[in-house]
Amino acid sequence: MAGQVRPAPPPQQPTLLVRRRALGGIPDVPRPQDLSTEEARALSETLFRRLAGLDEGTPEHACVRNTLVELNLSLVRFAARRFRGRAEPAQDIFQVGTIGLIKAINRFDVARGVDFASFALPTITGEMKRFFRDTSWAVQVPRRLQELRLRLAAARDVLGQELGRPPTTAELAAHLRITEAEVAEGDQASNAYTARSLDITDDDSGATAVLRTLGREDPSFDVIECLDALKPLIAALTDRERTILSLRFVDELTQADIGERVGLSQMHVSRVLTHIMDRLRTGLLDDGPAP
């Protein structure tokens, strides 16, 4: 529903017996959100392995998944900070990000050896961006047409992949089991989704006068924000750690080459880099209380 986020119902508290069966010997943490980032990361990996052995739809599976959600809510808070200047309520953004977190948990395969935070953040951020997209209507449009626009967009993606070309109006109508007139109506509703300039394109870049006046969003802003957040964390490293970090990510040397430069074995360099990245990740994800 555009402009609103329907809050998910609070998860039912599992009985003690169900929780014991769900954890299967894993220590129970009454308040997972109170753990440090490193503790939460280690416990998450253990719980993901436990989750893979449980049948989806069972109370045990739901219990472990809910615990994983609580453990990783800091990822939602981290992603939400990128959009703190938006007009939408912070609580709505947080709820939408939590939906993205749940999707990431459902799709994550711990056997691949990928860090969950790196896997989940794009999904969480994507869910937030989809929320902004679906609530950015230039004028008031009936809910029926808003939903029709979303169905048409999804159908175009599916049929476009199957056909290898944009689907026709007749093909969209047949796929969605609606009339061609309804397809046209949904397309008209899309015009109210984003207000477009009436200026005529008058240069080779395709930019209208309004776009040239307003400018475009610079993707480097995100990079600057991340670098600014990293500065105090990097400053807290030792001289040797900063040197190793620079050799790896500025000079792009291999771990073996770094070892020769600083007089360490490749394995030792690997351990130092892992320790550095863990500290930086912990510092970036460390945040205050949830909205």
Rank of each mutant, 00 (worst) to 15 (best):
G164Q: 09
I99T: 08
L172K: 02
L101I: 02
G97R: 05
V139E: 14
Q91Y: 14
S118E: 14
A173Q: 04
F94A: 10
V158R: 04
V69T: 03
T123S: 12
H61N: 01
L148T: 07
L152Y: 00
L145E: 11
K129D: 03
G126W: 09
A154L: 07
V141Q: 08
G126V: 09
P167I: 00
N72A: 04
P122I: 08
P89A: 14
E88I: 00
T58D: 14
T169M: 05
G85A: 07
K103N: 15
I93Y: 15
T135M: 07
D109H: 15
R112N: 07
P167F: 03
A173P: 02
G85M: 03
G113D: 05
R143E: 13
A154C: 01
E162H: 05
V64G: 10
E162G: 02
F48M: 04
L121Q: 13
T123M: 09
R149I: 00
V114Q: 14
R86F: 05
V139C: 11
V139N: 13
Q95T: 00
T168S: 15
R112C: 08
F108V: 04
A52T: 05
G164N: 13
G85P: 05
F94Q: 12
A80G: 11
G100W: 10
Q140E: 15
L71N: 10
R81N: 10
G53M: 09
T168L: 14
A170Q: 13
E127I: 00
E171R: 04
G160A: 09
L150T: 13
V110Y: 07
A87L: 14
G126F: 11
V141A: 12
L150W: 03
K129G: 06
Q95W: 14
C63K: 03
V110D: 13
Q161L: 06
I102V: 04
L73F: 09
I105V: 03
P89C: 12
